[in-house]
Amino acid sequence: MGKAVKYAVVGLGALVMLFPFAWAVITSITPGEAVLAVPPDFTPEGASLAAYAKLLETLPFWRIVLNSLWIGVASTALQLVTSAMAAYAFARLPFPGRGALFAVYLATLMMPLPVLVVPLFIEMRMLGLVDTYFALLAPTIASAFGVFLLRQAVQQVPREFDEAAVLDGAGHFRIFAYVVLPLIRPALATFAIFGFMASWNSYLWPLIIIKSPEFMTLPLGLATLHGQFTTEWDVVMAGSVVSVVPILVLYVFAEKHVIASVAQSGLK
């Protein structure tokens, strides 16, 4: 295939990838009544931020953005800690029934979310935790996927490193914190990226457990917005733009690492 054709194909594809984002931005600054104009206006006259203002009037949108951010960070941090500790136990601390317990962890990995959401909702209702931050975070405190991923990384740390530390008088906690953790940093980073993306994008669980706007995360907030302004596409697109920006900023900084992590996951 000629070079020109190749560039034309991948270039055109890239346009198809970018256009929906560009169109969302354009729609969001188009004055409401002109949104449905035919032919569409690519450089809308009287462009305004009115849709963004309306967005903030309707929902506590900044709070929702902050909710998504802190829930994402908190759930990622919790998963990193709990998974790394369990990974260390499964890789370095022999105890009776360890294999069976690890199999239980793996089994939960195969549970599809739809199986869990209904009973989890019922459990949260019994505990009086419906419509709380805690309910949003609870199912993401532990991650079997994380334990699985990090156990492999811990197993690859040479035993001699631990033994040298033991000679220096270090116990398991010090070996874990000062020897193992620094050496599995790449795996921790990979897992952190997956964890944050999963939390940031999560929709089904918040949809079921959250009712009040002040506890909503972005996907749920946006869906609610869409329910209220079904035909006001400028407002809906303004909300979409606002919710893409933070993850986009993160992505620009971490792009290489994100792509490398995903690429690696397919090579196992």
Partner: peptide, 27 residues
């Protein structure tokens, strides 16, 4: 030591995955 390393994940896993799984079967 083993318990300290395991419980931070085992407790939430039991509460928010294993119990709901059993609850789902029962329901």
């Amino acid at each position: 030591t083993v318990a300290v390393f395991l419980l931070p994940s085992l407790v939430p896993l039991t509460l928010y995955t294993l119990i709901p799984m059993a609850g789902s079967l029962w329901t």
